[in-house]
Design a protein around this nucleic acid. Structure first.
Lengths: 221, 221
DNA sequence: GTCTATACTTCGATAGAC
DNA sequence: GTCTATCGAAGTATAGAC
C-alpha cells in the first residue's frame, strides 16, 4: 500500500473536492502568474493539483491549450462585468468629478477576485512573447479604453464642461497613468505586500485624477 | 575537409573580425532582447556568434553570467553618459519649457545605440522574474528620476515659476508617462516598425509635456 | 581558444494497465 | 479518468584532443 501523502497539493484550495480540471486550471493560474509560463512545468502543475502529470492531458490537450483556456476565462469574466453604457452616461450629468471616480471604480471592479488578479499579472508578464495576449492587451486594455475616454472628453467639451483641449491627448493623459500603475503594481513591486501596493496605487490614481480635473476644469469666475 | 559555411553567423556583424567574446555578447543581446532569456539557448547564441556551444564557456562561466555581463554593460553605459548636474541647472534659469525639453532629450541620449535599445527592451522583459534587473529598474529608472523631478518641481515652486502643486504628485504626473511609453514601445508595439514607434512616442511625450506645462504655469495676467 | 563528444538533467507528451 | 512507465527532444555544462 503506497503513501499518497507525498502527492498532496501544497495549495489548500486543491485539497477540496473541486473537479480535477478546475484544480489543474487553478494551479496553473497560480504558478504561471508567479513564475511565468516558461518557468512552470507540467510536472509542477500536476504536483500542485495533487495528480500525476499524465492525467493533465485528459483535460487539456497540451500546455499551450491550458494557457489559452486561462486567457479565455479572463476575457469572459472581464467582459461579463462590463457595465452597460447607460449606467455610465448616467454619471455624465453629474459632472466630470463623478465620471472620473466611477471610471476607475468600474474598471477595477472587473478584476475583483484573486484569480482575476493573478491572470492580470500573467497577462502583463506574457505580453512580450505571446501574440494572442499582446493583441488582447493592445485592444482591450489600451486602445478601447483610450477610445472610450476620448469620446467622453469630446462630449464634455461639447457640453462646455471642461476646457477645449485635444480629447485624444486628454485620453492619453488619463489612461496612461493607469497603465503605469498596472506595470508598477503587477511587475515592479509584485513581491511586496500586494494589497498595500494596490491601495497605494488607487491613492496615486486619485491624485492623478484630481490633478487632471484641476487642469481641465473651466474657471468659475 | 568539412564545410564551415553551415556555422556562419546569420548576423552580418559577427562575420567580421570582432573578438569572440564580443561576438558572443552581441549575439546574446540580440537574441535575449528578441525572445527573452529563457527562450534562448546557449546553442542558439553559439550558432549566431559562429562558434560551437562549448566555446562559450571559455568566455563566460555560464548562461546567467552572460546575462549579468549584459546588464552591467547597460548600467555602465547608462551612467557614463549621465550629464553633470551643472548642465541641467543651467537650463533652470531658462524656465520650465526648456527644462522639460532637455529633460527628455538628456534621458533618451543615454540609450543612443541599437545595442542599448535592445538591452533596454531586455530589461523591460526580464524585470518580472530577475531580481537584479527589477531592482535596477525600480531604483535607476523609477525612483531616482522621480526624486530628481520632485526636487526640480520643488525648486521651480520656490522660485515662483509654477503653481504650488505637491511636487511629488507633479513628478509622478511627468515621469509616469515616460514609463508608459517605454512599456508601449518596447513591449506592446515592439514587432512593428521600431523607429516609427519611437518617433510617435517622442511626439506623445511632447504633447504630454506641453499639457503638463500648461497646467502648472502661472497665469500671466 | 576552438573543436568534438558526451554526461546529465529536465521537459512535454504518449501508451497502456487498472 | 488516474496511474506507472517511458520516449524523444532539448537544455546546460564539462572533458579532452588539437
Amino acid at each position: 500500500m503506497k503513501k499518497n501523502s507525498e502527492n498532496k497539493a501544497t495549495n489548500i484550495q486543491n485539497k477540496t473536492k473541486k473537479p480535477t480540471k478546475e484544480k489543474i486550471f487553478d494551479s496553473a493560474v497560480d504558478l504561471f502568474s508567479k513564475k511565468g509560463y516558461n518557468d512552470v512545468s507540467i510536472r509542477e502543475i500536476a504536483k500542485e493539483a495533487g495528480i500525476r502529470e499524465g492525467s493533465i492531458y485528459n483535460h487539456y490537450k497540451n500546455k499551450e491549450t491550458l494557457l489559452d483556456a486561462i486567457i479565455e476565462y479572463f476575457k469572459t469574466e472581464f467582459n461579463k462585468s462590463n457595465k452597460p453604457e447607460e449606467e455610465f452616461t448616467d454619471f455624465m450629468s453629474q459632472g466630470p468629478e463623478v465620471i472620473f471616480e466611477e471610471g476607475v471604480r468600474l474598471y477595477m471592479e472587473r478584476i475583483n477576485t484573486r484569480k482575476m488578479e493573478k491572470i492580470w499579472r500573467l497577462i502583463c508578464i506574457e505580453t512580450y512573447h505571446n501574440d494572442k495576449i499582446r493583441e488582447f492587451f493592445n485592444e482591450e486594455l489600451l486602445e478601447k479604453p483610450l477610445a472610450g475616454w476620448e469620446e467622453l472628453f469630446k462630449t464634455l467639451i461639447g457640453k462646455n464642461m471642461i476646457k477645449p483641449v485635444n480629447p485624444r491627448i486628454l485620453a492619453y493623459e488619463y489612461w496612461s497613468f493607469a497603465i503605469f500603475l498596472f506595470f508598477d503594481c503587477y511587475i515592479l513591486k509584485y513581491d511586496d505586500d500586494f494589497d498595500f501596493c494596490m491601495k497605494e496605487g488607487l491613492e496615486k490614481m486619485t491624485n492623478h485624477t484630481k490633478f487632471l480635473l484641476e487642469s481641465i476644469k473651466l474657471r468659475t469666475n
